[in-house]
């Protein structure tokens, strides 16, 4: 089961630790703790948590102002206010700032978990569906292809990508996915791995592999990996008619590929030659 990321905003270490203790035994994972409103906004952007717990009194702003700012950054943000006081005016102002639920300190374990579950259910349900139905097929295609093409055994894992972009160095191959769901796949690796992978595929010495040859071979391999993934999916779901668009290959250092409005997952496959990554992003269903 995927861990669900929670960010705690609380300037009191006692309260923050209490919440962390409760969540540590669950499927929720505390990805960040912010002590001020400014820190909260910064950490929200960086971590994109599924849900935020918000204290009312922060050193630089109150929790309602801070929630409004987070909501401005991400209108879909899930925020739970946990405050010492809870009255009608706080709830009215809080709702306007985009706060979804209100709990009173000290918060009981069950109450907290029920609220967090309720708020994140839709997202967790959607992620589980995408991961189990689609991303696992792409992971299988990647592991089988690494073995067939280059004789590389791998251990692989899937993670939900919470960042707005992926940062890549080396070779990245972008393949669009059309049909249902729409999206795109990016297979990427650093240049050293690209050359080692190519040498293994071509049964050649590493020294004989030029950068251009490595780019072309990685492109071809990526096309095969993603194509196989789509075939597995089309075999399982007869009505999807997923197709891939031709590869676009990006080569360079410190490049950001932006996950614009995509729900995306990163598959990491570790082999003895190095690591191959694949990011699969799905567009929101319209």
């Amino acid at each position: 089961m995927e861990k669900v990321k929670v960010m705690i905003v609380d300037d009191s270490r006692v309260s923050a630790t209490m919440l962390q203790d409760i969540l540590s035994k669950t499927n929720f994972e505390v990805c960040a703790v912010a002590r001020t409103a400014a820190e909260a906004l910064e950490l929200y952007k960086r971590n994109r948590p599924a849900v935020v717990t918000m204290d009312m009194n922060l050193p630089d702003a109150n929790g309602i102002v801070c929630s409004a700012k987070i909501h401005e950054e991400d209108p879909k943000a899930n925020i739970v206010m946990i405050s010492a006081m809870k009255d009608a005016s706080l709830i009215t102002q809080g709702r306007e700032a985009g706060i979804s639920a209100f709990l009173q300190k000290p918060v009981s374990t069950n109450e907290l978990l029920d609220t967090l579950m309720l708020l994140t259910q839709e997202r967790v349900g959607k992620l589980a569906l995408l991961r189990d139905s689609y991303v696992k097929s792409f992971m299988r295609a990647m592991q089988d292809s690494l073995k067939d093409l280059a004789g590389l055994a791998s251990t692989a894992q899937i993670e939900v990508s919470n960042s707005n972009y992926i940062e890549v160095d080396g070779v990245s191959v972008i393949l669009g996915l059309t049909g249902k769901p729409m999206g795109r796949a990016v297979v990427y690796m650093d240049m050293d791995m690209a050359r080692r992978f190519t040498a293994a595929m071509l049964h050649s010495e590493l020294a004989d592999i030029s950068e251009e040859e490595a780019n072309d071979s990685v492109e071809e391999a990526s096309n095969i990996i993603v194509g196989r993934g789509v075939s597995i999916i089309n075999d399982i779901f007869k009505d999807r008619e997923m197709r891939i668009t031709p590869p676009g290959t990006i080569c360079g250092q410190h490049i950001r590929i932006v996950n614009m409005k995509l729900t995306s997952f990163t598959v990491t496959a570790r082999t003895e030659a190095g690591t191959v990554y694949m990011n699969i992003g799905f567009a929101e269903e319209k």
């Binding site: 996915l177 999206g183 780019n215 676009g248 290959t249 250092q253 490049i255 590929i257 995509l262 992003g281």
Partner: peptide
Amino acid sequence: DISTPSMTIGENFQIK
């Protein structure tokens, strides 16, 4: 049929 757009940002990179 068209895919979703992929935006890439950086300095001095090549696109094939």
